[in-house]
Design a protein around this nucleic acid. Structure first.
Length: 353
DNA sequence: AAGCCGGGGGG
DNA sequence: CCCCCAGGCTT
């Protein structure tokens, strides 16, 4: 048996039973691939089930309001995926008669579909002979061939892309692509790979050399930034001031509370005086610290404090804010951080005045 | 080419 | 604390 055959045999015996593997419907496969971008299967699975249930066809997704899609996407992160997904659904329904493109060349033209996702849909739904290249494939191939070219350089990507297409089993691209990714997810893991039970063990150069942990090679490193944010829960007759976050930063298109920000930690009196300067409140008013949370993201650590202010008149907040009651706000997508606060606030309501 | 975009799980 | 996950878009 050659390497491709060993890989396929291993896959057929050991694959996980995942819902998007039981269909060739390009819409459902696309849905799963968008959700799974930079996202573990265990985290994305419940979202796939929710979306497939609520939007069984591309037409129902295309009709959905953006706020509804983002509420369903809430907690999954990388929210531009959800907005691009909606735009692409609308494009396909309005301009392609609802028919999903059936080739890599056409798929990659769509918003939110890059080289990986185009290859995944083209092969899984239409059995096109194009290799997927994701984090799993980078890892498997870099170890199998002991390649030290960095996977986040342009030249490295070209090299691995050529290698992946060379390694592709042209007689069964759909199964081969799923198999090599599954191998990366279950056997050829980032740390402590299970080489002892790997179907490619005997021909794996890194295993022979005894250094699989040295692959793959990455050159870029992420540096995290610390942010200190004071959120203001302005309460007026049971309504709360919120605004839709603008383009150009984190949580674009999600709803949020008015806030102040600093590069270094500040105390309540500092936030209070800043808010006073902006005429968000009056000197006689008080800030109640309700909730503190260190919110950890890949590229930033947010030290958040949530202050509640009970108002007797509506201030001008400069956020294009709207005033919503809790049931209205509960229908809108918010960050995981704000969701935590709102949940806590609901569990321990403040009985005021 | 580099920076940015979330949240979570595992070592 | 670190890593990275069925990546893609913008500058």
């Amino acid at each position: 048996m050659n390497n491709q055959q060993s890989l396929l045999q291993w896959y057929l015996l050991n694959k996980r039973d995942l819902p998007w593997r039981n269909t060739q419907n390009p819409y459902l496969i696309w849905l799963s691939e968008i959700i799974l971008q930079q996202t573990r299967v265990a985290q994305g699975l419940p979202y796939f089930l929710k979306f497939a249930q609520k939007y069984p066809q591309i037409e129902s997704l295309a009709r959905a309001p953006e706020d509804e899609v983002l509420k369903l996407w809430q907690g999954l992160g990388y929210y531009s995926r959800g907005r691009n997904m909606l735009k692409t659904a609308q494009f396909i329904v309005e301009h392609l008669q609802g028919q999903f493109p059936n080739s890599y060349a056409e798929l990659i033209k769509l918003k939110g579909i890059g080289p990986y996702t185009a290859a995944a849909i083209a092969s899984f739904a239409f059995n096109e002979a194009v290799a997927v290249l994701d984090g799993n494939v980078f890892r498997v191939l870099s170890r199998f061939f002991a390649i030290s070219d960095s996977i986040d350089s342009v030249s490295g990507k070209k090299l691995f892309s050529a290698l992946a297409n060379d390694f592709l089993n042209k007689s069964n691209p759909a199964l081969h692509n799923q198999a090599i990714m599954e191998l990366g997810a279950l056997i050829c893991t980032p740390q402590n790979p299970s080489c002892a039970i790997c179907p490619l063990q005997t021909n794996c150069l890194a295993f022979v050399q005894g250094n699989p942990n040295q692959f793959p090679v990455k050159s870029k490193k992420v540096q995290t930034k610390k942010r200190y944010i004071a959120y203001f829960h302005f309460n007026y007759n049971g309504k709360i001031a919120v605004f839709k976050r603008p383009p150009g930063g984190i949580w674009h298109a999600l709803y949020d509370l008015p806030y102040l920000e600093s590069d270094e930690p500040l105390q309540k009196k500092d936030w209070f005086s800043q808010a006073l300067n902006k005429n968000w409140l009056e000197p006689k008013q008080t800030l109640d610290l309700i909730f503190e949370k260190k919110h950890i993201l890949t590229h930033q650590h947010i030290y958040a404090q949530f202050y509640r202010v009970n108002l007797t008149q509506i201030p001008h907040l400069q956020f294009n804010e709207t005033w919503l009651n809790p049931s209205e706000l509960s229908k809108l997508g918010v960050s995981r951080l704000l969701d935590l606060y709102l949940q806590k606030n609901q569990a321990e309501p403040i009985h005021l005045l």
